[in-house]
Design a protein around this nucleic acid. Structure first.
Lengths: 122, 122
DNA sequence: TGACTCTATGCCGGATGTGACATAGAGTTG
DNA sequence: CAACTCTATGTCACATCCGGCATAGAGTCA
């Protein structure tokens, strides 16, 4: 497990506030969280590509802006069901989502930061 | 929407008892259900490949046999979260699951039946 | 500064999913 | 038939997730 990955998990507020709690997560838990983060990323990028605000997307899926925000943040209170349903509402097919989440998050050579520093370390 | 697909949905007991209720399902709903059915299939096949009983798998994921049965049936009371977590517990990676759910259910030229006719039509 | 837009976070009542249990169906073995 | 194994289905108390709302942060514009 890389440190950078840990930072991503912590950035999403996955109750991994400390390394101790983190160690209680099984490999399956971590894999599931990473999957959610990947889908969250797909959702955000697709929404932006379609020039929708979080509020707009919320209305599209019959939800609220806050839930969309939590979704894109990979918040632990959002299920994969809602995420996939949202991705489908955005016009993506299961195959497209599958492909997008199968490959890493890097956007073609741009070394952009992905959040990480937003949550103050302590 | 093909009739055969509809049958699969009904076979899973997806509260699509009649065509009327079915029409209330949006495209996203149907896509999500199909995704669940695909993942359910992957879980069942992987479990059998590993020669585990439903009870065995249940203990592996800290659940019960009944939930595993519902999972593999694509029951509406099972979330994608639990399904993916289970797939991961079975040793599958996100990429592997993604690939498996992206492609149709046929197993490399072997023309095996995959259930379908098990549930009597009525 | 204030007004506006977009996004993030906390909370709550109600809806949905969960593990556990009981029980039944289907198949095998004796 | 009984006894056993594996799987399917229904139910329930409890946990989790949901939409909605309030509110705060960050950015833009005048």
């Amino acid at each position: 497990m890389k440190k950078s990955k840990l930072n991503r998990l912590r950035a999403a507020g996955w109750s991994v506030g400390g390394v101790r709690e983190f160690l209680e997560l099984s490999d399956e838990d971590v894999a599931l969280i990473e999957l959610k983060l990947a889908v969250a990323d797909v959702i955000r990028r697709t929404r932006q590509r379609r020039e929708l605000t979080q509020t707009g997307l919320a209305k599209l899926i019959g939800s609220s802006q806050s839930r969309v925000a939590k979704m894109e943040a990979g918040d632990s209170s959002v299920s994969l069901d809602l995420m996939f349903r949202t991705a489908f509402s955005l016009g993506l097919s299961a195959s497209e989502v599958s492909k997008l989440i199968a490959k890493p998050r890097q956007a073609r050579g741009s070394a952009k930061k992905v959040g990480g520093a937003r949550t103050s370390a302590g």
